[in-house]
């Protein structure tokens, strides 16, 4: 990246280089109060969103009806449970509806609220097809008409939360917006494919489940690559302490990497090689691990961002120079 950075000019009488000084070691920025409820929402709506993408693909395939039905129900479930938990994280939850009071284009949380409202509504419509589709032609038609927009909104649901975290002054979240969003998006797709693979296996559609498992593993690979890019960006700006110590370290390494990546690869590898009875149990274990690992990764990032906001050296290290950028008026 060859961006000329804006380095503030200080007068000659002032020490020109920052030598790690802080103000009594006190925090510069404040950490968000985001906790597990926000992580739960990110994971749940990520899975629900990507499930709508899969539902849209399944509707275009012959024999994809079962998968489409389950994906639509998964999306509906996620878009009911997720927001209920998210509202609990508000410090004045009875005013949740103020989220839809205005549309603020500069606020990913405002855009996300509207996106969520649209996604929830569209998921309700597609669920009509899943529930009444066999009996009612009207329900089928309404659901299919809503499917395209639902998939587009779903893709947004899978990634906007990364943009939301990145658009803050918490150093770890703001350090690598593009790789972080790729990481969140891939994890959403991997989670949805895994959840639906479990559903397909339970319904006896094993071949369909296998394709979903392949998709999940591919998405997990993309997530791993993106997480490497994110972690490199953190290391390049000296922010790695927030993710290599304490709870975020355990969640990221043990949860995100070992359970979320290594375990599924091993389980699928052995399962496909062995076939037979192991060929049923191991893939289910792998799918579960992908979902849990993706959740752990997202929670690790959330906690690491809160941690880095409280470290003055992180804030100062990342604000020695700024991208000049447009001045809005």
């Amino acid at each position: 990246m060859s961006v000329t950075l804006q380095r503030p000019t200080l007068p000659p009488g002032v020490q020109q280089e920052w030598r790690g000084e802080t103000y009594h070691g006190r925090p510069v920025t404040k950490a968000s109060g985001f906790d597990w409820k926000v992580s739960f929402y990110i994971v749940t709506l990520g899975i629900a969103g990507a499930a709508q993408v899969i539902a849209a693909l399944a509707r275009t395939q012959r024999g994809g009806d079962g998968l489409a039905r389950r994906a639509r129900l998964l999306a509906l479930g996620g878009s009911i449970v997720g927001p209920l938990v998210l509202i609990r994280h508000l410090k004045t939850p009875r005013r949740w509806y103020n989220m839809l009071r205005i549309l603020r284009p500069t606020s990913p949380m405002s855009l996300g609220s509207w996106l969520l409202a649209g996604f929830g509504g569209l998921s309700g419509l597609t669920a009509l097809g899943a529930i009444f589709g066999r009996r009612s032609r009207l329900a089928r038609r309404v659901a299919d008409a809503a499917q395209g927009p639902a998939a587009v909104a779903g893709a947004g649901m899978g990634i906007y939360t990364a943009g939301l975290l990145a658009s803050t002054s918490s150093p770890v979240w703001a350090a690598a917006p593009a790789p972080l969003a790729a990481q969140f998006g891939a994890a959403s797709m991997a989670g949805a494919a895994s959840a639906l693979a479990l559903a397909q296996r339970a319904a006896g559609e094993t071949a369909s489940a296998r394709r979903l498992e392949t998709l999940a593993m591919l998405a997990t690979g993309v997530e791993l690559l993106a997480s490497r890019a994110t972690e490199r960006a953190w290391a390049a700006t000296g922010l790695e302490r927030s993710i290599t110590s304490g709870a975020p370290a355990v969640l990221n390494t043990l949860g995100g990497k070992a359970v979320g990546v290594a375990l599924p690869i091993a389980a699928h590898g052995i399962g496909r090689a062995a076939g037979g009875r192991a060929g049923a149990l191991l893939p289910e274990l792998a799918s579960l691990a992908v979902i849990l690992g993706g959740a752990a990764m997202r929670h690790a990032v959330l906690l690491a961002g809160n941690d880095s906001a409280c470290r003055p050296e992180h804030v100062f290290r990342t604000t020695q120079a700024a991208r000049p950028g447009e001045v809005r008026r």
């Binding site: 943009g163 969003a181 993309v222």
Partner: peptide
């Protein structure tokens, strides 16, 4: 927000 949204949507 913009780089995050663009890269995220490209991934999806």
């Amino acid at each position: 927000a913009r780089p995050a949204f663009l890269s995220g949507l490209a991934t999806m």
